[in-house]
Write a protein that binds this DNA or RNA. Structure first.
Lengths: 247, 247
DNA sequence: CGTTGCGTTGAATAAGGTCAAATAGAGTGG
DNA sequence: CCACTCTATTTGACCTTATTCAACGCAACG
């Protein structure tokens, strides 16, 4: 048993890329898998890819082949209409899965763009299908990941369809804060990786409205804003913006 | 071989409910499966459920157990916010799959309400997981169905986030028309099953705006409106409303 | 030190929302 | 079949919100 162990220790490539060693394994695909099963994942996820700020992991219309797990960094996904208007459909950080939009038509239907220098794990989709037929827990988990993406989008529809500008921004900030928290970062202080225009696009608002609303929140003592650096000063206050009558 | 055949012929229950006999098999779960494989589906989908107008197939927070394929009729799915505001997240007709929102948290996250007397096929989720490990094409197809739901919601986000009222209504009517067409109904004449308020909720508009915009389309000769009965008179005209500057 | 991209702020405007009233149907019970 | 009720729809007048257009400030960078 010591020989294989040694082999592993000196296999720097495997060590570096292995799901079994990944700090994100609790929130990414390996969730719920046994050590043995995670080792099978290691054979599937054998490529990492660096993506520089501004570059895409995939683009709309491109042939679908793999899913991508965000290893580090920050992404946006966008749709583009024929007339050039575009819409940000999501922001994605470590542990999030990208590319599931491509399965249905075997080609991607949105662009995934890095907002900072980032890294993704490439998950060949055919291999994932195979493995999830073998490993029940993986199948189950993969289905959950897709389902949660559906639920996340329901939430965005609620936001876009029934909330006022202030509510949208408050919900946006609280959601970001919560996601940073669950990744071990500060719940109350973070740097936005996206511009006001990208926030606006995501929330169905113009960038000026985003800026003005941030300023108003600051006047009200709810947050501190310095360019991209945000401090949440009154989290409960922000929550109470949600569902409150215009005031 | 003739004995089993005879048995099938006289098994009215199986005959009535079988996927293998279903007129929707080209657009529902059985898509792409061989005759043998569809027979396996028949063992999985052994219940149909009638849902009367106004009743729910499932409600938010309810324990998740099954998916539902719309056999006939018309449904809406809705989310409800704490303060009572609600948002229609989709309209669903024959061949559509309901309930995939429930997989992720093992409980449903929206309500599925019949807008007319309807019927659904109950697909026990555990059985679907099992079968899709056995039948590769079924696994593949199920993943496609979920992925397409994600893409559909992307489309709604685009609509809610970047379109004006007229564009939303035009896109809505064209989408309905296309879906009726692919089910063999007239592309240009149909009855809306939902109220103006429900359309408005789905599109992020108030019912008055929906009504006014329908009236404007009628004045412009694009459609004919008599209450819930819609005739599309100028489909190209409707398409050109999309992406056109306010005018 | 000018350039460039991003962010803030103000004033005017338009799109859609709100409130209110009138109308039209659908369903019900006599 | 008719009167009645209830709900959905249409339409008008007015108002609020967010957008548009424009100017200016700031920070990063070559």
């Amino acid at each position: 048993m010591s020989a294989p162990k040694l082999a592993k220790v000196i296999d720097i490539h495997a060590l570096k890329n292995a799901c079994s060693n990944c700090s994100l394994r609790e929130m990414c695909l390996p969730t719920g898998l046994s050590a043995d099963e995670i080792e099978k994942l290691d054979q599937m996820v054998y490529t990492r890819k660096r993506v520089k700020r501004g570059d895409s992991v995939y683009r709309s219309e491109e042939k679908f082949g793999s899913l991508y797990a965000v290893r580090s960094g920050f992404f946006k996904t966008t749709l583009v209409m024929e007339d050039g208007r575009d819409q940000v459909t999501g922001f994605h950080m470590a542990g999030d899965m990208l590319g599931m939009d491509g399965i249905g038509a075997d080609q991607h239907s949105c662009n995934a763009v890095a907002l900072e220098d980032s890294e993704v794990c490439v998950i060949p989709y055919g291999r994932l299908e195979e493995l999830s037929r073998e490993i029940y827990v993986l199948q189950q988990h993969f289905h959950k990941v897709m389902s949660r993406e559906i639920v996340r989008e329901h939430g965005v529809m609620l936001l876009l369809g029934s909330m006022r500008a202030e509510e949208r921004l408050a919900a946006f900030l609280l959601n970001l804060s919560q996601r940073f928290t669950s990744r071990g970062y500060s719940p109350s202080e973070f740097n936005l990786r996206m511009t006001r225009e990208e926030i606006g696009s995501y929330l169905g608002l113009k960038l000026e409205t985003v800026s003005r609303t941030f300023s108003k929140f600051q006047e009200d003592g709810l947050i501190g804003v310095q360019q991209k650096f945000i401090r949440i000063l009154d989290s409960d206050g922000l929550k109470s913006v949600l569902g409150r009558d215009p005031s």
